[in-house]
């Protein structure tokens, strides 16, 4: 009972968090702002997927979350490097 309520509340809060970061992604105004928004978006997605895993009672979602964590980090680094150097590979 408490458990279901906690999961529903947490789903709602993470949904709001996703909306906030999406707002920053659309509005900008600067390039680093958008990258930061993407970064937050993927971290929030990890939380959402893990929560879904608890809700459905399946450990399979762990691999997906790990994969998103790795790929999201690489994406953030690549985009920041692109702003710093104007180029990813030199």
């Amino acid at each position: 009972m408490i458990f279901d309520a906690a999961i529903s509340l947490s789903f709602f809060l993470i949904l709001l968090a996703l909306v906030f970061s999406f707002y920053r992604l659309v509005k900008g105004p600067s390039m680093p702002d958008r990258i930061l928004a993407l970064d937050t978006l993927y971290i929030n997605t990890i939380a959402l997927i893990i929560l879904l895993g608890i809700y459905l009672g399946s450990v399979l979602y762990f691999e997906a979350a790990l994969f998103i964590a790795v790929m999201g980090f690489v994406g953030t680094v690549a985009l920041s490097r692109f702003i710093l150097r104007g180029d990813i590979m030199e």
């Binding site: 993470i14 968090a17 906030f20 970061s21």
Partner: peptide, 25 residues
């Protein structure tokens, strides 16, 4: 488990709230 889930949800929410609320990058 419920307490941890709610704490996690609240902190995730506050972290993203900063994106909307704060004035500069």
């Amino acid at each position: 488990v419920s307490i941890f889930i709610v704490i996690g949800g609240i902190f995730t929410f506050i972290g993203s709230l900063a994106l909307v609320k704060m004035p500069d990058f």
